[in-house]
Design a protein around this nucleic acid. Structure first.
Lengths: 326, 326
DNA sequence: CTGAAAGCGCTTACAG
DNA sequence: CTGAAAGCGCTTACAG
């Protein structure tokens, strides 16, 4: 390339990286640009990485990319990364622990500059000790690590407040069986609201299920089959809510007449269900965006601003109504 | 690292890459392995890429990762890539053309070794001339490029055959408004089956819509609002089918009584709809797997076997029934 | 303003 | 079996 333009390697580098002003003559700049254009030349990424110590690649870690919520996060993250010529590598943990080994290798080998973690537990062990500046957790509880917060407490309170206001007294909880703080928080807040409202907090009203329709369906069913069935159920995720719809249908129960349902996330599915799902809308794509922005900022050494907290809001649709017998 | 183990750089490389047999003494091998373990040492990825000319990274290009079908493809592809220590970078085209520039840069700069293309048109232009060995198209029509085939024709025939067998005479088609051969094929086969069955092939029975519930809903509605409404609709995608459910609901039509619906893909959504959706099951994750396997094989210079063709099969559920008035 | 050189960390011939 | 060296393609001081 330098030869093609008849200039030095250094000049090419300077021009193509926009550091040419006052260092390379305009004529040379033109020649370089023209030659690059003609040859379709791009700087070799590996050589750049080696020299600069930055791979311009970050990994997004999610439990299951088939969940549209995580797909939306990925989309948001990818958009932001692309703006600064970074690539996003996906690590789908499939709800297993093994990903930490992979992540550790990628980091140690410099294949990846940092991580955005979504709904997976923070990695442990000495290998991740220096990770603070290379990691952003999405919707995390731990203040110790850089993160983007969601107002999970507010969302949970809004959802349960809505059910309480409708007159429900027995409110169940279909939680996500994932080891992430966000779900622990929802469970905690669920109990707190019930308690404050003087409503029963019973083990019988709580179940945990994988975020997968088939796996969750029988568990949702257990919740609805009890003698003293809840008249409303708060679900940690829209997919769980959908599983509850199926379970209700299995049992001949009508939503919202026999049981009200509230979801979490507001993925496209929420409005495709019939009746449309009342749910806590979470800005998934924005979460991915903001998370990636923060990671990239941290990687380029910018001071980390205060932990941002994204709003969520309850969207009331057709799946909630007053209980049949008040 | 070499210093830590008290051996040469070359020995480290040999041992860690499994090329040590008969070239490095067992004692040295042990020392290297121990030191690597202790230090958590990984070979620098950039240096390896530079030296070897392979980035061990491939890109998956999809129109919209929020569509669970594409998410499943990604998952399958990622699994396979991981087995051989390759990373998968996502390029979400957002149904736009701009991705080709990005892809071209990534390839020219060696950031990416190859591409798996799913439901996007093959790239054009001289920059992609030498791409044949670095590209696999999923579900492509063009035999000119390496690809993994799906039996789209068979699936379409099965879907329409099912509707014809049920007694439907006016069968509509809600197609995907994407410039990919797979959708052209479905439209073509739809017309062919109707023709062969002596049924009307009319422009009024065909519509194209983006694969997005909100965008597709009014278009689906047009299809159902006509005076001579179709009694059944074949949809190019389950998401389109879901949009049709909504449109039917808007118009007070009941599925399958007033209109039968067949989808394509069998994503999780299909069974969450009520009634559950009759659809052509496509092995999405497997598609991603096989596509990635072929790409990796091609990249390591293995001879490309015959183009594999994956089976699809019609899954009959509750959304199809005989028409009301035969 | 321009060019020659060092060095990022590997792998692979090559000489001992 | 071991070690010293070249070179992948960049970027960045440095000398002219």
């Amino acid at each position: 390339m330098a030869r093609a333009a008849g200039v030095s390697q250094a000049a090419v580098s300077l021009v193509l990286n926009g550091r040419a002003v006052g260092r390379v003559s305009v004529a040379t700049q033109e020649r370089v640009r023209l030659a690059a254009e003609t040859l379709g030349y791009r700087a070799n990424a590996a050589a750049q990485s080696l020299r600069l110590g930055r791979a311009r690649t970050v990994a997004l870690v999610v439990p299951d990319i088939r969940n549209p919520f995580f797909a939306a996060v990925l989309r948001g993250a990818e958009r932001v990364a692309r703006r600064t010529a970074h690539a996003v590598v996906l690590i789908d943990t499939d709800n297993r622990r093994g990903w930490q080994t992979l992540a550790q290798s990628a980091l140690a080998g410099g294949a990846v500059d940092g991580f955005v973690l979504c709904a997976v537990a923070a990695p442990r062990g000495p290998a991740f000790a220096g990770l603070r500046k290379r990691l952003v957790m999405l919707d995390a509880a731990e203040r110790r690590l850089p993160s983007v917060q969601l107002d999970i407490v507010g969302g949970t309170r809004a959802a349960l407040g809505h059910l309480v206001a409708l007159g429900h007294r027995r409110i169940g909880h279909l939680g996500a069986a994932l080891p992430h703080a966000t779900f622990a928080r929802r469970a905690q807040e669920y109990r707190r609201v019930l308690q404050q409202a003087g409503l029963p907090v019973e083990a019988a009203l709580e179940r945990q299920a994988p975020i997968d329709p088939d796996a969750a369906r029988p568990i949702a069913r257990e919740l609805l089959e009890q003698r003293e069935r809840p008249t409303a159920v708060f679900c940690d995720d829209d997919v769980l809510a959908a599983a509850l719809y199926k379970a209700a249908h299995d049992l001949g129960l009508t939503i919202p007449r026999d049981v009200s349902v509230v979801g979490f996330d507001d993925i496209a599915l929420a409005r495709l269900l019939e009746p449309e799902l009342t749910t806590v809308a979470v800005p998934a794509e924005r979460l991915g965006q903001v998370g990636m922005e923060r990671l990239l900022a941290a990687l380029s050494g910018e001071a980390t601003a205060a932990t941002p907290k994204l709003r969520v809001r309850l969207v009331v649709r057709g799946s909630t109504a007053p209980p049949l017998y008040v």
